[in-house]
Design a protein around this nucleic acid. Structure first.
Lengths: 202, 202
DNA sequence: ATAAAAAATGAATACCAGTTCAATACATGT
DNA sequence: ACATGTATTGAACTGGTATTCATTTTTTAT
């Protein structure tokens, strides 16, 4: 006798995997991240703890998958928002605006992607660092282009890109963890101007 | 019968407390911070695990004390380096140079003060956030003064200060965790210029 | 030197999170 | 309906860390 999964079962399984990923996202995004235990995730996803291991090899695999997913969502949005522009500064500004909008509307995503405060998990930290480094690397590409075109002064673009991302990250995190800035417009402009001026936009 | 501690004993106890604090610093500064267990700290300090609890109420108390100490050391150095200057920009630059020098020469301090990557400890995270916020607050004071004097354009100084600290932190961390920049001088100047230009130094 | 007081010890304890697994429930094909 | 393959369950297991505490060592005062 051979057993073949029916459509209904396949769908149920996919839905469960999604539920696990969503539960993990929600729990990780909450302030007290200690709460993101397998037991808690399983409970939130509506399954038994053992069931978790039918969908993911271990906790590391879950975190890996989750971070990849979130990062992809961010990159896709950035790509879309940058598409209309060819000028380097416009592209950078579009990138920042895309990030601000995404992070402010989906604060839980932002907490996971920008805030590494509370993780004890080695894979999480490694993956996380990789993502930040990747963002810095993408920024550096833009800066090298701008420097090539003499639109910004001679500088160590690796350092500038790191500073750029660092400034951005700290501000967004402050907004997320406290309450919004009083004057959104001015705050946004201040951040964007800080970074663009920092590069030496002439 | 009444027991009074003799000088020798008091000194020995103070020295032990120091040894515990130093052991904690060294272990926390190492890459794999999971190793900073009470057992490891006690071992490094040359005492039994139980003895630790004669000197600190619990692990949280140790971390609290340690972070306060380190932060005080940093603030003292900053204060000293700023003393010669009255101009706002000079003061900011002196602050940055003091931090760069301290962090690059005492990388373990920097890892503890700037990099919260691997802690699971709630008190550590809270304390850490407090310290960063304090640094931002101190920066904001300088910026308000500069804005008052019309030396930088109108802006949300809370945001600028946050960006300033964030850029600085990210770059220093990158230097600490990888290897030094190839061209130290240019890298330092790039970072300092980024931040000063970011403010809109005219 | 001796007894009381304090400090130090480290094995035992308590606790908590990730993971396993024997038992159970459900799905499939005949 | 039945037999067999697969999925689910949750209690038990594992490993690791903070903390305690009965015992031992050291210090003090007589």
């Amino acid at each position: 006798m051979v057993y073949h999964k029916t459509e209904k079962v396949l769908e149920k399984q996919q839905s469960r995997k999604r539920k696990i990923l969503n539960a993990a996202r929600e729990l990780l995004a909450e302030k007290e991240m200690g709460s993101a235990s397998i037991k808690a995730i399983a409970k939130k996803a509506g399954i038994a703890t053992g069931t978790f291991y039918l969908y993911f090899k271990d906790k590391d695999a879950l975190i890996d998958t989750m971070l990849k997913e979130i990062y992809k969502e961010l990159l896709d949005l950035i790509k879309k928002e940058r598409a209309p522009y060819t000028n380097g500064f416009d592209k950078l500004e579009a990138t920042m605006k895309a990030c601000i909008n995404m992070f402010m509307s989906k604060k839980n995503l932002a907490r996971i992607l920008l805030d590494l405060t509370p993780q004890n998990n080695a894979v999480f930290n490694t993956k996380f660092t990789d993502i930040i480094n990747d963002l810095i690397w993408l920024t550096k590409i833009d800066l090298d282009e701008l420097m090539e075109q003499k639109l910004i002064p001679e500088q160590d673009t690796q350092v500038s890109a790191t500073a750029f991302v660092g400034a951005f990250r700290e501000v967004i995190l402050a907004w997320i963890n406290s309450d919004e800035p009083l004057n959104e417009e001015q705050a946004y402009r201040t951040l964007i101007n800080f970074n663009l001026r920092g590069l030496g936009k002439s």
